[in-house]
Design a protein around this nucleic acid. Structure first.
Lengths: 204, 204
DNA sequence: CTTTTTGTCTAGACACTGTTTAGATTGCGT
DNA sequence: ACGCAATCTAAACAGTGTCTAGACAAAAAG
């Protein structure tokens, strides 16, 4: 409950306070529980204030999505360290799926193209940086050149690497991977084992 | 514009009229353009009427999702006719991706677990029936038994078959597959060719 | 053929939502 | 110290999903 109080009329750092508030709400209640007014209340500010900093709700959520892609990029960056070929692809995919499972709210937001501004340059750059390790692994595995944004859009081998990760991640967030324990919680260990099996079937 | 007029106080078949209205709205404006009141207006009925038939908006959308899964099931049913092994998996995945591309609104709805009632029995049955051909192909390819619902939840080989299809379909609806033509339209032919390449890389 | 009962639908309200407008308040550069 | 620009508020607007009464009509019961 980071209800940012404030003494002065001006907030001081409302922009990042709103982003933090949004992230907390999304982590706690999911994207469907998020509301622009709720974020404003959490930052201790009037309902109209966010508009001035982000233009619209999509502007704020775009920043949250950007930061989420940066978090994903950080987790993916070191995951293939010292690994090559299919082993690298397996490790990266496993991290991708774990990220989706452990950050369901953020991951769902990243897929909500109706809530964020897909054409935002910073967001696109973050997406590119996040996908970079996967592209490098795909290129390394199958003997391709240095990945560029254009390459990533079109090369079938990279898409073949991304698609299973994306699909598994979605299945994970929908609770369709592995057995769920009572109370709706997921058995993370069993899920990891299942994902590992799937990955060995796809990339032996 | 199926603005169902009516002469009598009672509608006669409001339930299916609302489902049709919802489907038309989703096809034309996407899930994000859908509104329960809009569907009610289209059926020529007051805003509170739908609640009586479906309990809530999620109830109506669950029916739309169910019918969408049935449509998908119908398209998948005959796609692997006469094919075996990886060829069957490739054909089924291609159909899955085409369905997502040609029915973006419905496909997006199927993934919106916050808008539909996932635990609805009819919906679950429809999902199961839709996934059946993929399960059969995966079982046939790799020597497994007859697929059952429990099997489909847990077997890594089936998940390995579903995940790429799911991932590719999501990438397709987000416009990240193949080059998009000006005006935002997708070059379907080029996309099919790309998907074919991807599938041959995954399942040679 | 009436009467009752049951299922449909309407009207209006409620508590929300995101966004807009005009105005109040403050910090900063000169 | 003053004016300007940035920042935030207050109030309103159109729209949402859902709830509670009650109006209406078709089917069942007498």
């Amino acid at each position: 409950m980071t209800k940012t109080k404030r003494d002065s009329y001006h907030h001081g750092d409302l922009r990042s306070a709103l982003i933090s508030a949004a992230e907390e709400i999304i982590a706690a209640e999911g994207v469907e529980g998020f509301t622009l007014r709720k974020a404003a209340r959490k930052a201790g500010v009037s309902p109209g204030a966010p508009t001035h900093h982000f233009g619209s709700m999509a502007g704020l959520l775009t920043q949250v999505a950007r930061r989420s892609y940066e978090a994903l990029a950080k987790q993916l960056a070191g995951a293939a360290e010292g690994l090559e070929g299919n082993a690298a692809l397996r490790a990266l995919t496993a991290v991708y799926v774990r990220f989706a499972r452990d950050n369901t709210g953020r991951f769902r937001l990243m897929g909500r193209t109706d809530l964020i501004e897909l054409e935002d340059d910073d967001l696109r750059a973050a997406v590119y940086r996040a996908m970079r390790p996967l592209a490098a692994a795909a290129a390394g595995t199958r003997g391709l050149g240095v990945p560029t944004p254009e390459f990533e859009r079109l090369d079938p081998r990279l898409i073949a690497a991304i698609a299973p990760a994306h699909g598994l991640a979605h299945l994970a967030t929908e609770g369709r991977l592995a057995a769920t324990m009572r109370s709706g919680e997921v058995d993370a260990q069993a899920q990891d084992a299942l994902v590992d099996e799937v990955l060995r079937a796809l990339w032996p």
